[in-house]
Amino acid sequence: MPADRHAHDHGPGADHVHPVNFDPTAAEPDRHRAEPSAGRAFRLGIGGPVGSGKTALTAALCRALGAELRLAVVTNDIYTTEDADFLRRAGVLAPDRIEAVRTGCCPHTAIRDDITANLDAVDQLEQRFPGLELVIIESGGDNLTAVFSRGLVDAQIFVVDVAGGDKVPRKGGPGVTTADLLVINKVDLAELVGADMAVMVADAHRMRGALPVITQSLTRTPDAPEVADWVRGRVARVAA
């Protein structure tokens, strides 16, 4: 929601803020069109447990795809400010192309059961940047059962990491079994944490059937080339 702009737009010399802003011009106009337009950006969800590397992957995709696709990002989380700030500091995307959503302590609710806040954020980005081609919606870190609603995203990536234990794919859950792409992150750490990559990848394929699995290390390949290629393919498939 728009902030109390008034308090931040004082002229020079104003060093106070009002406890309450009663400025009638700060009333929010109806910014939203009544009817959504026919064409819209491709919406990609990125979900997965806390610390698995969702934000790092989002930043990598911005770097890899930013020059060829008009894109924007929605971050979700109790640590929403943290993640949005991380992306802004990474300098991979203009700050006004990042919207942060607060989820009321329930990240999975905001991407699955009640997608309103995220749809609003996507709407705002699409209005601010007409002709957007890709909106990445990064979920707050959650458990293995948290998947995006098909009402919110066109495709979703579930990110797990080697340091979280090589048993994670075997545990399954909707994220691992149904996401359009499973990314196993931080493979460079496998040796350090005693994770057996062969077992992890075999488990992932066994749980997912024909659905794709990509292993990667953003330390070794900071631009996530394989995942970026997969995203290109999905966006092109819709555009065609």
């Binding site: 929601m1 902030a3 109390d4 308090a7 803020v17 009002h18 406890p19 309450v20 802003n21 109790i78 640590y79 929403t80 400010t81 943290e82 607060r102 989820t103 009321g104 302590c105 806040a117």
Partner: peptide, 24 residues
């Protein structure tokens, strides 16, 4: 409800400076 008015504005201001979990 002046108290709720004050809380709402304070919330809006603080969420820009530090983490807030709810939108209001």
């Amino acid at each position: 409800s002046p108290a709720l008015d004050l809380l709402a504005e304070a919330h809006d201001r603080h969420h820009q400076q530090e983490v807030r979990l709810f939108a209001s």
